[in-house]
Design a protein around this nucleic acid. Structure first.
Length: 480
DNA sequence: TGAAATGTTGGGGCG
DNA sequence: ACGCCCCAACATTTC
């Protein structure tokens, strides 16, 4: 093979990159490209942190490739047209890319493969964004798992049996095969997008950003197991965005944890954090083998549930979206999402459970809102999380497990530190008073400078009543 | 990766 | 001394 084209998608780094490695192995001359795919971008708001994150990461990727002697070509339009065209333009006999398990990506790649084949070229894809791919971890019967714990055990056994899967893909020795040239990058404006507050939020893009965040997290790894549930603490890694766009290597993360564990330096937190990385692969595997979960319940019986609809439900949904449900922890979490594009994992569970089981609104509406707002939005993880909360997914929580938003608040934001950071109008409330302001005597509220209904809403729903309605609503999943 | 309802136990106040 | 009640503190079951 003479010439190869590497197509970057959700793997925006030059190092430890499976497709780039294999292209350099196979080709004498290797071009690199990224497409701002209009099939994806056309549906996004014109100011979108994710697009800016990608753009900023591409600037770094281009610089890194140039430092290695190559360059990056960036185009805008339909990837299904542009990749075959670009392959023809540079004279590539094969396009190299990393596997993507999302249904739309699978369809896109199939179309690209077919178009390439028509001109005698091929699309070659490689496992890169997971440690173990969709059908590498199987039950003894050779079938995909649908329960997390046995999946995780099999995953860990498989890693123990062959730790070499974590080895990085090196490219340095073959970097001279990168085709030299000047990178061609459109500006954010060129592709029709506006700058966002990404920088002000202190979200560093690119491989350097991912590496810096991981470095900053490592000292906290040992405490992850206990600290991760408290949104006011820096307990989590915050790496989900970098994992989404491949500005960190999953092999590097897993390898680092494995090495620290072997030296006894990862504590209990290391195993818990690794478990979260396994959840990520579990949901990708589930999505691949059960593509119907994108839209419908994993368990079909749960599609019989009748959700609240109509003007009242729309108003309740709007209150949830805008953080004015009257439940401080829920509202603070939604404000965090709306203002930063991030939400702490514990709060994703709390807000999802509240929408579904307190407001009786379908999980699909919440899923779609998160998909729009989350910087780290990933179909498999987001869908898996929402179906977990709705009890409709594989290995989901039981339908009768309903979070009490006040209890969750008392447990995981006991001092109200997180709530106060997003709801300054409640700052006057002291200590535990903040979790359920409507329970306080009016005089006390006055004294604290809070008028319910003015400074802060009355609760949109009574939890005890909503809980009963939800138990009734879910009755239909039991009848056959 | 819950919470509420219900059941049980045991200490202390009291007649 | 004893039974009774109250109720906190757990424990179990139910949703």
């Amino acid at each position: 093979m003479k010439t190869a084209l590497v197509w970057f998608r959700r793997d925006l780094r030059p190092f430890d990159h499976a497709a780039l490695h294999h292209a350099l192995q196979a080709g004498q001359k290797v071009f690199c490209a990224f497409i701002f795919d209009s099939a994806i971008l056309d549906d996004l708001p014109r100011a979108d942190r994710r697009v800016e994150f990608i753009h900023a990461s591409l600037l770094e990727l281009a610089a890194d490739l140039e430092a290695l002697g190559g360059h990056l070509l960036v185009r805008c339009g339909l990837a299904t047209d542009l990749i075959p065209a670009l392959a023809a333009e540079v004279g590539a006999s094969a396009v190299f890319a990393n596997e993507d398990y999302e249904p739309a990506a699978i369809a896109r790649d199939a179309a690209v493969a077919q178009a390439l084949a028509e001109s005698g070229r091929s699309l070659r894809t490689f496992k890169d964004q997971v440690v173990f791919s969709k059908d590498e971890v199987l039950s003894l019967a050779g079938k995909p798992f649908s329960v997390f714990t046995p999946y995780k055990n099999a995953w860990l056994r498989k890693l123990q049996a062959d730790p070499s899967v974590l080895a990085p893909w090196h490219i340095e020795a073959l970097a001279e095969r990168l085709a030299p040239g000047v990178s061609q990058l459109p500006s954010l404006r060129d592709i029709g997008f506006m700058e966002t507050d990404l920088r002000q939020l202190g979200i560093p893009a690119g491989m350097s950003g991912g590496a810096a965040m991981f470095e900053a997290f490592l000292p906290h790894l040992a405490d992850y197991g206990t600290a991760r549930d408290f949104p006011a603490q820096r307990g989590t890694s915050g790496l989900s965005l970098h994992l989404r766009f491949g500005t960190v290597s999953i092999r590097h993360l897993a390898r680092t944890v494995a090495e620290l564990s072997a030296r006894g330096q990862a504590g209990e937190g290391g195993a818990v954090w690794l478990s979260e990385l396994i959840w990520r692969e579990f949901y990708q595997m589930i999505l691949f083998h059960n593509p119907h979960v994108a839209g419908a319940s994993f368990k079909p019986a749960y599609d019989r549930i009748e959700w609240e609809t109509g003007p009242d439900a729309d108003e309740a949904f709007a209150a949830w979206c805008e953080g004015r449900t009257g439940y401080p922890l829920v509202d603070a979490a939604m404000l965090q999402l709306n203002h930063t594009g991030f939400m702490h994992n514990r709060l994703r569970m709390v807000t999802a459970c509240f929408l579904i089981k307190d407001l009786g609104i379908s999980w699909q509406r919440g899923e779609a809102y998160f998909a729009l707002k989350l910087n780290d939005f990933d179909l498999a993880a987001n869908n898996g999380g929402w179906q977990w909360a709705a009890s409709s997914g594989c290995d989901a929580q039981p339908y009768f497990r309903i979070f009490n938003p006040v209890t969750q608040s008392e447990k995981f934001d006991a001092q109200g530190e997180f709530i106060r950071s997003w709801l300054p109008q409640l700052k006057g409330l002291r200590g535990k008073e903040i979790h359920a302001p409507w329970l306080l005597p009016r005089e006390l509220l006055m004294q604290r400078g809070v008028v319910l209904g003015q400074d802060y809403p009355e609760p949109v729903v009574r939890h005890d009543e909503a809980r009963q309605r939800t138990l009734e609503r879910y009755e239909v999943v039991k009848t056959s």
